[in-house]
Design a binder for these strands. Structure first.
Lengths: 238, 238
DNA sequence: TATATGACCAATTTCGAAAATTGGTCAACG
DNA sequence: CGTTGACCAATTTTCGAAATTGGTCATATA
């Protein structure tokens, strides 16, 4: 087990380097926007040669795609952590709140999702049908679970709720920041209350139900995270 | 009273011509986008000389601004008509539904509001602080009325409801069209139900209350319409 | 031998000045 | 008096040259 450092260390150092590259790329992306960040900039910022970048990603688009993918994965993981920590976080309004904050607190991710045109040149839109499909499948699965456990209003179809939920969520994401002197937390609370009233059934779920639902949702999230990570070209770190 | 046709007819013909110009401009705007529509195009389309356009509007920006203003006014008027026809249309969910449809059924207006970048070059954003101010004042007044009549949930502040309502509304406006095979009407219904559950108090309003509220709202809308029209450079037609 | 690099090249972007278009004016016309 | 289109300045478009950048690979290094 004390064996060949050449085999054992190399992959880890490689992963660390990939992370350093992504960190640099993310920072530059945020500061200067997609069009003004060159591969040379990223390489220089990460303290490596340009060619080395191409040892990790096939081209520029994949590199920046990985930056985006990592942001998404971090947000999803944050969500999963919340669910593990407290089963009640699987309730739609709590879920919405956590998701909202996970996005809002990541300026790059927020920019991507609102597709700020100079933050990412069509990276969000076209080449990403695969992930989008997975994510909406996950959403579908989540709402199906909620319906099964009787947590959704029964006077709307599940698909309708899912649609309305999505629209509402994105509305809040896009909405300007300022009712009165309020931070993202306040807006997240507002979103939560809106979702609760609009889509949740009145009945309170038992602890058992919640644990059940939470773990199923964690599983759903886990699958999504795995699938996303698999095609993301991201390092598999600690 | 049978007097000078020169004085009586001229203003009306002038208004008709203005309308013709705006119609042409709107059509071209929708077909080719802001940047590709020239004053010459508009003049030719309206069957007049270029100079004549400038007898109505000071410059290009004002002309297209008037196109936008007219769309807004038409939508507001449609709304007002609905309120006059049926007092129940002043309930938030009904109001949202009607407003949503009034916008969705006007592609140009929809483009403006979602500021489709090549439908209107920054016309929506910068020079229009005045109208925006009036409109949010109107929204504020409307929600204050609703609160007074006990039609809003009392577990949220009025300002919070107004903010959340706005966010939700714009979310639905932006949301892609298709749950399953559904038209704008179906999405409007979804929005209505969402608004109703999220923001309205359970209690049913009496007919008297509704009439009261409806006429107050009509007054509010009337003021807004008048103010908008006053600075719009629009003809005062039949 | 395996990995990292930067000189190198094709492809794209930027630049700049000339050409073309267009917003806006106004003398002339009806 | 209302309308117009020729006219002009200002803006936009064009297009070839110059500069930059994505991506490769022979070479250097450990």
């Amino acid at each position: 087990m004390s064996g060949n450092p050449g085999r054992l260390r190399a992959p880890q150092q490689r992963a660390e380097r990939a992370t350093r590259i992504l960190d640099t790329a993310a920072e530059l992306l945020l500061r200067h926007g997609y069009r003004r960040v060159t591969i040379d900039d990223v390489a220089a910022g990460a303290g490596i040669g340009k060619g080395t970048v191409y040892l990790h990603w096939k081209n520029r688009e994949q590199l920046f795609g990985a930056v985006f993918a990592r942001e998404v994965l971090q947000a999803l993981d944050e969500l999963r952590q919340a669910l593990r920590h407290d089963p009640r976080a699987c309730l739609p309004h709590r879920f919405a709140r956590a998701y909202f904050l996970a996005i809002t607190n990541r300026p790059l991710l927020r920019g991507f999702l609102l597709d700020d045109p100079d933050l990412l040149g069509k990276l969000t839109s076209s080449p990403d049908t695969a992930r989008d499909t997975r994510h909406s499948a996950m959403a579908h699965g989540y709402f199906a679970l909620l319906a099964e456990h009787g947590l959704l209003r029964d006077d709307m179809h599940v698909d309708e709720i899912a649609y309305a939920y999505q629209a509402t969520f994105e509305g809040f994401l896009r909405a300007e920041g300022s009712t009165d002197a309020d931070g993202p937390d306040r807006r997240a609370d507002l979103l939560a209350r809106t979702v609760q009233r609009a889509f949740e059934s009145g009945s309170a779920a038992s602890d058992a139900t919640l644990r059940d639902l939470a773990s199923a949702t964690v599983a759903l999230l886990g699958d999504l995270i795995d699938a996303d990570r698999a095609e993301s070209g991201l390092p598999e770190e600690a």
